[in-house]
Amino acid sequence: MLCPPFQWRNCLIKLFARLALLILVVFIVPSLAAAGWWMTQHHANNWRDANWSSSNVLPAKPTADDAAIYVLAARTGGLKGALSLHSWLVLKRPGTTHYDRYDVVGWGTPVRKNAYDADGRWYSNTPSIVHEIHGTEAATLISKIETAILKYPYAKPGNYVIWPGPNSNSFVAHILRSVPEIGVVLPANAVGRDFPTDGKLFAIDDDWRNVHATLFGYTGFAVGARSGFEINFMGLVAGFDILNPGLKVPGFGRIDL
């Protein structure tokens, strides 16, 4: 319904009130609920007390003839763990019996290789496998992933920004967008994944299966076969997926239906 003449001020007030209510219900209330839940859980007091050892999520000794790609993620430390994950990549090249782990940290040179066990806990939090690829498909993609890692534009000391990015999730999301054949997006609660590491505020994946729009990571949206429909507000993501039925809830991530 159009606004009546000379009522633009009242109409704007109503519009902003409804927008504020929408933000409250969709983004703030779930985030507060996630924070409340997180505070009831046991956590390491600091990084020195945290357990960083292998979680045994991955096979300890992979077979030499297998190639594999893993995307892993675990809740991060401190209060920010209520709302966000830390994600990383693990590559297993054919003909080898070890893994190579790549992730980004907030001190020194951001991009690290094998700084931790491939499936190591993050601040004592056990990781989960977001996505995995094996065999010939993995072998053909590993070189593309390595090229994307080398070309990551925020790899110099001082480039890391905890929010809205570029952070650890921005790095992994950059690789996933650079190599869309991997076929997955990071979980909705991987804060920083929507930061435009390529400098583009609007982008379409090379395979045309996902569209992204962002205002420097502060707000934006994504739609496509991989993302479903998502709205990003200040790093918090809400949305739904029809092809793989599920809801995306700030703080909690994806809830399968």
Rank of each mutant, 00 (worst) to 15 (best):
L2Q: 15
P4G: 10
P5R: 13
P5S: 13
F6I: 00
F6C: 03
Q7M: 14
N10K: 12
C11F: 11
C11N: 09
I13Q: 13
L15G: 15
F16H: 06
A17M: 13
R18A: 15
L21M: 14
L24K: 03
V25E: 06
I28V: 15
S31A: 15
S31R: 03
L32C: 14
A33Y: 09
T40F: 09
Q41T: 13
H42A: 15
N45D: 14
N45G: 05
R48N: 11
R48Q: 12
D49S: 15
D49T: 14
A50S: 14
A50M: 04
N51S: 10
N51K: 07
S54I: 00
V57G: 04
K61D: 04
D66F: 01
D66E: 14
A67V: 05
Y70F: 15
V71A: 05
A74G: 02
T76K: 00
A82I: 03
A82F: 03
W88A: 07
V90I: 11
R93V: 02
T96G: 00
T96P: 01
T97I: 06
H98Y: 13
D100V: 07
G108I: 04
P110F: 07
V111T: 12
K113H: 14
K113A: 08
A115Y: 12
Y116L: 14
D119P: 05
D119A: 06
R121S: 01
Y123W: 14
S124H: 06
T126F: 02
P127A: 03
V130H: 01
I133F: 06
G135Y: 08
A138M: 10
I142H: 07
S143R: 13
I145R: 09
E146Q: 15
T147Q: 14
T147N: 12
A148E: 09
I149L: 09
I149Q: 05
P153Y: 07
P153D: 10
Y154E: 08
N159Y: 08
Y160C: 06
W163R: 10
P164R: 11
G165E: 08
N167E: 06
N169G: 01
S170K: 04
F171A: 06
I175Y: 08
L176D: 09
R177V: 05
R177E: 15
R177A: 11
P180F: 10
P180E: 10
P180T: 12
I182Y: 12
V185R: 11
L186N: 02
P187W: 02
N189T: 00
A190L: 01
A190Q: 00
A190T: 02
V191P: 00
G192I: 05
P196C: 07
T197F: 03
D198F: 03
D198A: 07
G199V: 05
L201E: 04
F202V: 13
F202C: 03
D205A: 13
D205W: 05
D205F: 01
D207S: 06
D207T: 02
R209S: 08
N210E: 13
H212S: 11
T214R: 06
T214W: 05
Y218D: 00
Y218I: 15
F221A: 14
A222W: 00
V223G: 04
G224A: 03
R226G: 01
R226S: 08
F229N: 02
E230A: 05
F233A: 12
M234T: 05
L236R: 07
V237M: 02
V237L: 01
A238L: 10
G239L: 07
I242A: 12
N244W: 02
P245D: 05
G246P: 02
L247P: 06
V249Q: 03
G251F: 02
R254T: 13
D256W: 00
D256N: 10
